[in-house]
């Protein structure tokens, strides 16, 4: 067992080392694209101030290093990144790293909840549908999944607010916790949980529908394979066949798709966080784009690519733990 843990450790370390050039590449592309957009922070600040003299603008640019040529700014940026210094957000007047960390946990909480929901519901519903194929539970689940699959995220979010917050008044419509309530400990966790239900559901809906359909198809496909007939010929009951032999084999494509979909989910979180005023990275990114907060935007992009890379490594490890045919080497 410990040798297995060691193999996983080595695998993760190797993947992390391989991720370094990818991250540098991403940093280069991000920097180029963001700097190609017209206008800089000085323009926005000056615009908001209403009137600014060219001297004030030049002073601002000099203060934030915006008067330097692009390659100098890039090298400075890279050099700072090596020490995990992502610069200073002049809009929020706080270091980018601090801002990112403050907004990271809400987003992680939201995404992990949504993913777990999608994964568990995908397996449970997919298995129920596949085991009752072409009977009413299957029709119910398949139709439900199709509807969920086709529903736009922002519309679903607004409708849920109308129904559960405005009409029924049972769930809070926005934010992550009740402001000014000053809850601590379990009471606070319950409060956050209550705020979490709607955004997590909305964010996970599409992925859930996707995983349900995938799991159903995968169960049916694996159920026709030869080793299932072997299991039946051993005298195993249908439950043991489904849960011991079919389920694990059927989960493999689910894990793969989950890894791929998490990147897309980061995009979805911008929408959901905006609709539900969730104080996460998505909303921060939205603000950063419109305020030309380049340092913050670059930091956000960097953070997202890091999250995608880590998710991929986690998926790969999970895949190798389930399927012995894929080696850790």
């Amino acid at each position: 067992m410990s040798s297995n843990a060691l193999r996983i450790g080595r695998f993760v370390a190797r993947r992390l080392v391989q991720a370094v050039p990818i991250l540098v590449g991403i940093a280069v592309i991000n920097f180029l694209f963001v700097n190609m957009a017209p206008g800089d922070a000085a323009d926005v600040l000056a615009g908001e101030a209403g009137a600014a003299s060219p001297e004030f603008m030049a002073d601002l640019r000099e203060r934030y290093g915006l008067d330097q040529p692009m390659y100098v700014r890039f090298l400075v940026y890279l050099g700072k990144m090596m020490t995990f210094d992502l610069g200073y957000s002049f809009r929020f007047s706080r270091p980018v790293t601090e801002l990112l960390l403050a907004h990271l946990w809400p987003t992680l909480l939201l995404m992990v909840t949504a993913i777990l929901f999608a994964f568990i519901m995908g397996i449970v519903m997919g298995v129920i549908a596949a085991r009752n194929v072409n009977r009413w539970p299957d029709y119910l689940i398949s139709t439900g999944a199709l509807i969920a699959y086709a529903t736009p995220v922002f519309w679903l979010g607004l409708m849920m607010i109308v129904l559960f917050s405005v009409n029924m008044g049972i769930l809070p419509s926005s934010g992550m916790e009740t402001i000014g309530a000053g809850y601590t400990g379990w009471r606070r966790a319950a409060d956050i949980g209550q705020h979490l239900i709607m955004p997590a559901l909305v964010l996970g809906m599409y992925l859930t529908a996707f995983e349900v359909r995938l799991m159903r198809a995968s169960m049916l496909e694996v159920g026709e394979q030869d080793f299932v007939t072997t299991a039946r010929s051993k005298g195993l009951g249908e439950n043991a066949i489904a849960y011991r032999h079919v389920l694990r084999n059927a989960m493999l494509p689910l894990v793969t798709m989950l890894g791929l979909q998490i990147g897309a989910m980061l995009g979805g979180s911008v929408l959901v966080e905006t609709v539900f005023a969730w104080p996460g990275l998505g909303r921060l990114a939205y603000t950063a784009v419109f305020q030309r907060d380049i340092n913050l935007l670059l930091g956000l992009l960097f953070m997202c690519s890091l999250m995608v890379i880590i998710t991929n490594i986690v998926t790969e490890v999970a895949y190798r733990l389930i399927d012995p045919r894929i080696s850790m080497e």
Binding site: F227, T230, R248, I322, P324
Partner: peptide, 12 residues
């Protein structure tokens, strides 16, 4: 069975 390649569960 005829096919030893597919008649055993690959994950066990």
């Amino acid at each position: 069975f005829q096919e030893p390649m597919t008649s055993l569960n690959p994950l066990m």
